[in-house]
């Protein structure tokens, strides 16, 4: 971990205390696991801090970890133009309550990504103004990227026009 990121992570720890659950590093990528309730504050702070601001939200996406506890993860990538660094946040949620506060108030660009995550995993984002499916048809019932959805889909879930 280089100095700038280390500093950012330290400040995150100092500022948010227990909300920063875990910091991991793999192949120079820094992953910060934060608590669900703190995500909006953390994002706001990351965008606005002085030393290394992260004004660009590159990505928001879900992961189905397929574990009994905290099955879903929502991930965020932020990029800093001034110090050319990238930080990866992760929020873990339970299967029976898959919802994470929306960060669209902080990063408007996250809007479509959250829609996509909702479409693919069924994770809801309270605070999102327009949470619809983004890819699949509106009346589709499943969330295809969940691990329990088969690759070839469920027959009849998506109707075809008649050959006629």
């Amino acid at each position: 971990m280089n100095n700038v990121l280390q500093q950012t992570v330290d400040s995150l720890r100092a500022r948010f205390g227990d909300a920063v659950e875990e910091v991991r590093e793999f192949r120079d990528d820094v992953i910060v696991v934060v608590g669900r309730s703190a995500i909006v504050d953390v994002a706001t702070w990351l965008r606005d801090n002085e030393t290394c601001p992260f004004p660009l939200c590159e990505d928001v996406f879900g992961i189905d970890a397929w574990t009994r506890k905290q099955r879903f993860e929502v991930n965020y990538h932020f990029f800093s133009l001034t110090c050319k660094q990238r930080i990866h946040l992760k929020v873990r949620v339970e299967e029976n309550d898959p919802s994470v506060p929306s960060i669209t108030g902080v990063y408007p660009g996250a809007g479509w990504y959250e829609r996509e995550t909702f479409d693919m995993y069924g994770i809801t984002f309270p605070g999102h103004r327009d949470l619809r499916r983004s890819y699949m048809p509106e009346d589709f019932e499943y969330h295809p990227l969940r691990k329990d959805y088969p690759l070839m889909g469920i027959p009849g879930a998506l109707p075809l026009p008649k050959r006629g």
Partner: peptide, 15 residues
Amino acid sequence: FRSYSVVQGIDQFLP
């Protein structure tokens, strides 16, 4: 594309 969203051949709904 053997996947849930791709029609496996348009002859299923077109001549």
